[in-house]
């Protein structure tokens, strides 16, 4: 179900917690699984649950609670834009509008070529960097003027 490399990473996460507390690693394990699979199909969630010795529904509770887990397929690049108030005051919403127009999609949609999915995000704890984008959950892009958005898209286009 998951690659040796992913399993190794999960084992490293398990080691952070006392014995008998493998479940503590579920958030990390789901993240690692999502990085490998692109999103979290139910069988992957079940695999992770079994790997950690917890009921599958408990792992599903976690996967459906934290909003960076994708329970439905997303494009190769998921772009999340913060539109919360502090960001909006510095153009967060405008940046999102610009992206929508550039990609021809709305929030929660994926471009027909499967390359980009656009999401509306909540506070990323980087309000001073507004407008802020998160690319594929792990790469934060700060001060995203339209020029920088264009640059980024061009770069991601070829990845």
């Amino acid at each position: 179900m998951l690659s040796q490399e992913s399993l190794q990473q999960i084992d490293q996460e398990i080691a952070k917690y006392p014995s008998g507390q493998k479940q503590s690693a579920v958030m990390a394990a789901l993240r690692i699984a999502q990085v490998e699979k692109g999103w979290l199909p139910k069988d992957v969630i079940e695999f992770v649950a079994n790997y950690l010795g917890m009921p599958p529904i408990a792992a599903y509770e976690v996967a459906s609670f934290y909003n960076m887990y994708d329970l439905t397929p997303v494009g190769r690049h998921k772009i999340t834009v913060c539109t919360n108030l502090p960001c909006a005051l510095s153009g967060g919403v405008n940046a999102a509008e610009y992206l929508k127009q550039k990609l021809g999609i709305d929030f929660n949609e994926t471009t027909p070529d499967g390359k980009f999915t656009l999401k509306e995000g909540e506070c990323m704890g980087a309000c001073g960097d507004a407008p802020v984008l998160l690319v594929n959950n792990h790469k934060m892009c700060s001060w995203m003027t339209t020029e920088k958005i264009d640059q980024w898209l061009a770069e991601l286009e070829n990845k």
Binding site: Y17, S24, M27, A28, R31, F65, N67, Y69, C123
Partner: peptide
């Protein structure tokens, strides 16, 4: 001491 990473929940 270990780092535990959240995944999107205020």
């Amino acid at each position: 001491l270990f780092a535990h990473h959240g995944y999107g929940a205020y």
